[in-house]
Amino acid sequence: MTEQPQEPLLSVTGLAVDYGTGRRRARVVEGVDLAIPPGRTLGLVGESGSGKSTIGKAVLGLVPIAAGSVVFEGRDVARLSGRERRALGARRQVVFQDPYSSLDPTKTIGYTLAEPCVNRPAGERMTRQQIADRMGSLLGRVGLGPDAAHRYPAQFSGGQRQRIAIARSLMLSPRLVVCDEPVSALDLSVQAEVLNLLAEVQRDLGLSLLFISHDLTVVRHISHEIVVLRGGRVVERGPAERVYEYPEDPYTQSLLASAPVPDPDEQQLRRDARRALAEQEG
């Protein structure tokens, strides 16, 4: 972990992704560039159809790339052999949106957590004891007792499952975690807990996060940098504070003006601002 700080951990250039085949083929992501330095969080914001989740999947190697490159730790992910790509699983992880579908209901939490650790390439192999120790410490870290390992996903609430998903993503000490709408299915009070947990593990472990969300407020809270997407293209990027407080692109402005805020007076101002924007655009 002693590379030059300038070198990004993940850099995506000219990324394009297609969905469908033949006549139904459609480009859903076009010409997207991203870079995440070690230990930083990049927020990816957009509405449905913006391609934000697709970018996350492309970074994880879950969808084929039509053009461009995804370079992780200095190596082009698309050019790796299957074995090398599998080895990458150790350093690149994911937390998904739906806490009900992201854990296999037929497996205990212990199995789910241990799974990434078995069948590792030589040199990364962990003993049974090492796996158990790590599981125990991570479960404690995400606020669950060690007995959770013997239970099934159905016995946990949505927030608890999302904690388990975070613990699973950390089992192999990754350097990048892609978080695909990790809090959008959660209640406000649970959302706060999960956001705190993510921020905490990031700070403590020096993780990089690719944080995908439709909620600008949440993204602003957790990200260092924000990229705004619309229709598969980047419309605005910049430091989180700047994009949130002084958005330049009209789409970002309308996105921000559309998100209702928990303050009747401020909300009234936003509503007026949005009307003005709409009139401007005609």
Partner: peptide
């Protein structure tokens, strides 16, 4: 998807 990302074959 999570298992695949983790390198499970």
């Amino acid at each position: 998807g999570a298992a695949r990302v983790s390198g499970v074959d």
